[in-house]
Design a binder for these strands. Structure first.
Lengths: 147, 147
DNA sequence: TTACTTGCAAAGCCTTTGCAGTAAA
DNA sequence: TTTACTGCAAAGGCTTTGCAAGTAA
């Protein structure tokens, strides 16, 4: 999972190929944005990437970073870390439950999943700190939105 | 899990008590905001609640709804549906993994959890539509941020 | 050359905040 | 009465968009 020197190279190669396949032009900015992201051990925001990037390409603009990340994500080249939209959604507090989200209509449904609630967390997680909540987000297309 | 007439009443009673315990004043707006949320089967946004609320309290303002929801959430009376912050975070696509988030420093760590990856989804979920991804978000306070 | 990308600037959306008036305790 | 809460208006942060100039193919 952590990026190593050679895994970056492999990733970049795969990336270039995927761009070609998708008909995306390989610009200097795109390559650097992808490389920067692939090098990141954390999960940077657009702005964090932008700040790093400016060291290499002083003229890049923040909007290009945004646009590029959106483009990459829409082609499945990168992921936006699981988030439910820019708008916050609320619920009254109740029993432990999880969420099912339709990526088309954005409807959010609750569901229960005891298997997960009762499962022991991996050791790496247990030693990370104090755990407060565990919640699964399952996403897909709901029946109403399927063709 | 779906709210029923009497469970609302129970919830409102518990809510009023919790407000008193927390030293929060019971205003008309707060009660109605809470009731509206408790009645919701979906997970409304502040704006959705506001639009409904205006039917009952025409003078209510959107900022009050925001402020009230924030207050409620900070007292644990309601939940903000799992989201990682207002800023989007990105990562290159790689193997199935999950996220560990420190609610203090907001650092996001990847981890693997085969138990969940391999577990069968509950039946209710399986019949919901087409599933694309399942991802666990575990939150808490990481060791570095613990006292 | 042609169509896609970029940088710039401005707008957009969601949310927060300062302030003065209002209402709960 | 006292202090917290509300509504208003304005600002703030993150993200998107229109447009003209630039560049990959």
């Amino acid at each position: 999972m952590p990026p190593t020197a050679e895994s970056i190279e492999k990733r970049l190669a795969a990336f270039e190929q995927a761009c070609r396949a998708a008909g995306l032009r390989l610009t200097h900015q795109r390559l650097e944005i992808y490389r920067q992201l692939a090098l990141s051990r954390n999960h940077p925001t657009a702005e964090a990437l932008y700040l790093e990037l400016r060291k290499k390409i002083p003229t890049v603009s923040l909007d290009t970073v945004y646009r590029t990340l959106t483009t990459f994500a829409s082609h499945g080249l990168i992921n936006k870390v699981e988030t439910i939209e820019s708008q916050a959604h609320f619920e009254v507090t109740h029993e432990q439950h999880h969420h099912l989200i339709c990526s088309r209509c954005k409807e959010i449904i609750d569901f229960e999943w005891r298997t997960v609630d009762d499962a022991d967390l991996p050791e790496a997680v247990a030693s990370w700190g104090r755990i407060d909540t565990r919640s699964v987000v399952v996403s897909g297309i709901c029946r109403k939105c399927l063709p």
